[in-house]
């Protein structure tokens, strides 16, 4: 196709479903897993708390929970529900599953440095406040976008842990979240579902904040490094 021909396409030409279908995904997923989403809510609330701990095993557990959340959300929400109406969502869904498996595999090798209280509070806000964006957008309380099921909240909550990884691993783990944030932002924008833009924006905001308190490059050299930076005050 010629360059001029590409220029005749707009963002809307690539979105093959309507806002109603997207918002119904949140409702349908909640109906499908009811009442088990309460377990995910508890897991989501545990995540920042575990990520704060200085002892190793809670942070390993946090990574494992993050991995399970990515797998659950990737397979159920993205591949099973979103994929049939939006082909790229299937590809992202499988990328989420692979990311989740990676997190489970790396659980014992790569530990995030402890989150610190401000980041933990940010994490709790993500788990408790961000889900309401889908409710605001749809006007339906059943559309609550919960951790472990809806991609926006899952990504925003776990990105905190990724930002606290050693340098190389950190950027490797952030590839999928960043690509998803960009993709979902473009989708929400072209569908006019502006409240949902809060998901990718919150992810980026948290990432920037978390990176500002992330380990120094010296620490990040080895994947195993979990030594707290003496210059940083950690809880």
């Amino acid at each position: 196709m010629s360059g001029a021909s590409w220029l005749s396409y707009s963002l809307q030409d690539f979105v093959m479903f309507g806002p109603e279908v997207l918002l119904r995904l949140f409702i349908r997923i909640n109906e499908a897993v009811w009442p088990w989403q309460s377990l995910w809510l508890v897991a989501g609330l545990l995540l920042p708390w575990l990520g704060c701990k200085v002892a190793e095993w809670p942070r390993r557990l946090a990574m494992a929970l993050a991995g399970l959340a990515w797998i659950g959300c990737g397979y159920l929400f993205m591949v099973r529900y979103y994929g049939p109406v939006n082909t790229p969502a299937t590809w992202f869904g499988w990328a989420f599953v692979i990311e989740g498996l990676l997190l489970l595999m790396l659980r014992g090798r790569a530990l995030p440095i402890p989150l610190g209280l401000p980041l933990a509070v940010a994490g709790w806000l993500v788990i408790l406040v961000l889900p309401w964006l889908a409710v605001l957008q749809s006007g339906d309380v059943r559309a609550l976008a919960l951790f472990g099921m809806a991609p926006g909240v899952t990504v925003a909550a776990t990105v905190l842990l990724f930002a606290r990884q050693p340098l190389l691993l950190r950027w490797f783990l952030l590839l999928v979240p960043l690509a998803w944030s960009l993709f979902s932002a473009l989708t929400y924008w072209s569908l006019g579902t502006y409240w949902l833009l809060g998901f990718p924006l919150a992810t980026l905001f948290l990432l920037v904040v978390a990176l500002r308190v992330s380990p120094s490059p010296v620490q990040s050299r080895g994947l195993q490094s979990v030594r707290p930076d003496p210059e940083r005050r950690l809880p």
Binding site: M16, G18, V21, R24, Y82, P84, V85
Partner: peptide, 13 residues
Amino acid sequence: TWITFNVGSDQRL
């Protein structure tokens, strides 16, 4: 049917 009939497996839609 572009966009309008792409509702996936949503029985209600």
